[in-house]
Design a protein around this nucleic acid. Structure first.
Lengths: 152, 152
DNA sequence: AAAATAAAAGACTTATTTCTCTTTTATTTT
DNA sequence: AAAATAAAAGAGAAATAAGTCTTTTATTTT
């Protein structure tokens, strides 16, 4: 559904949103929190920073954080910033030209579920994930013992 | 949503299904009908053939066709054969371990839309696309003049 | 039987995505 | 001011996906 880059982006953004009182979060903490490649997530967040979806500060006590506006940002915004809007408006069968007047065989059905995805991601605002960290309700990485096994 | 391979696979299978009276269809005709790379679609159909989703015969008047069972095959079957079932059962955020007891932050919402996609693709049986070719209702490739422009 | 046709098979190339490494720049602490 | 910290920047390697090319095998027509 999403590219790996996009999956990491969403997980990192939710992780940053979950930090208590918009504390600045370093790449290290993010890597530890969501289990992802260090340099890769750095570059991804750099890109999101350029687009204004996340804020950052260099130096000691620096890191990534979300301002008021970014907290109102939805997962759909992140997906669009990373993967473009192909998922939300592209043809399911990859036709460049697919529309009401030139529909592919699954155009109408696909349009519906495609829109359901968009609605779902539009509803999910970063601010709503705030503070749920540590309450053990949801997870941003697999369970640790499985990881060790996999990586060995 | 789907890999390019999977998009071609679905388009080719629908094209074969649309042929009048389960006529055997050659790679050439398929390439012409859905506008795709010759050798690539040959390999894709070869793979689907091995899994029994499409039938084929070599030699003059040979080609690809669908038997009774294959006509009852759904698009979901094709997607599963080509892309695996990651789309239908995988975590939206790419977690290896994501379940009711260890959910990612969008597990429940994602599960719903993921299932909507599955239901939609399960409903779409190849047999139902039969005979709609040439009636100008749906299309399996872009409009021709756009193609020429793109390819130039 | 020979020629022609069309899929099967497999090696190979190209493009894209994913991920890594090194250096630079900004900021803070000592 | 110097040292330490952490993101920015950019080049490049590795892995995977997408697409190409050539040869082989099966079948049919002549």
């Amino acid at each position: 559904m999403f590219s790996k880059t996009c999956e990491y982006a969403i997980r990192a953004m939710i992780f940053i949103a979950q930090q208590p009182d918009s504390k600045k979060t370093s790449i290290k903490e993010i890597v530890n929190g969501i289990d992802c490649p260090v340099h890769f997530i750095a570059k991804i967040l750099q890109g999101l920073g350029k687009k204004g979806l996340v804020q950052s500060l260099k130096g000691p006590n620096g890191g990534f954080f979300l301002d008021k506006k970014s907290l109102r940002c939805s997962l759909a915004n992140i997906v669009r910033a990373v993967d473009g809007d192909k998922l939300f408006s592209g043809c399911g069968l990859g036709l460049k030209e697919c529309s009401e007047t030139h529909p592919c065989p699954i155009h109408h059905q696909f349009k519906k579920v495609r829109n359901d995805v968009l609605v779902m991601l539009n509803k999910a605002k970063l601010g709503e994930f705030a503070g749920q960290l540590g309450k053990n309700q949801t997870y941003l990485k697999g369970v640790d013992f499985l990881f060790i096994k996999d990586k060995k």
